[in-house]
Amino acid sequence: MSCIRSIVAVSFLASIGVSTAVTAQEMISDTTARKQPLTTWGVQFEEFEYRYSDDDEELGVWNADAFYGTDEFKVRLLTTGEYEIEEQAYETLENQLVGQIPISKFFDAKAGVRFDTPEGPDRTYAVLGVAGLAPQWFEIDANLYVSKDGDTSAELDAEYELLLTNYWILAATLDATVAFSEDREIGVGKGLVSTETGLRLSYDLIDRAFSPYVGVVHERKYGDSADFAEADGGSTADWFAVIGARIAL
């Protein structure tokens, strides 16, 4: 009997143990990562390509961006360059560092600085822009630039992806620049400056991380900018065959 009693006693003690554990319960506050804003990052090369023009010009071109941040605030580095392979010189080289915040369901506002350091004169601009997804699936990136000398210009980037299949994608891009004042030194005339239109057929080879493509790109200069280009011995319209890859890390 004493044996039973002791077992009962043990179970009794165990129960008390559980009960006291209940009283000792403490409502902790959540300091885990879950309660913090989710921080994320990404690197994307929208274009990473070799271009061959109709007058035998060869270019290495990239257009990439990297971001780090939360839903509420991201820092984004945008970089784009055109490297003239034969002359071993940068035709264009732009780097932007912007902060980005959401302003509507589908659009973000950006503000920051842009440094142009190609072959020839450098420029520094303040950047104000919006980027996002417009109705009917157009990816839009629109920016206003003000140079240190007060020259202003605007740039619109638009992209549309047509899914031939879920892996073969035909991407159409349009990039147009308008200047509100002339900057003769870098060949920019007032009015519509230039457009770049592209059509690229890609295949998603490894997830969306590596998608090789081929395509055509047409570059054109307009108005005074075209005249400046001609005066400087450059071309005003070029067709390029391109081969490259879209890369996402």
Binding site: T40, G42, L163, L164, N166, R208
Partner: peptide, 17 residues
């Protein structure tokens, strides 16, 4: 991270031509 970067990153049943 991929979903945050591209929400349709994994979706391979999207509507096509």
């Amino acid at each position: 991270r991929n979903l945050k970067m591209m929400t349709d990153y994994y979706n391979r049943d999207q509507q096509t031509v």
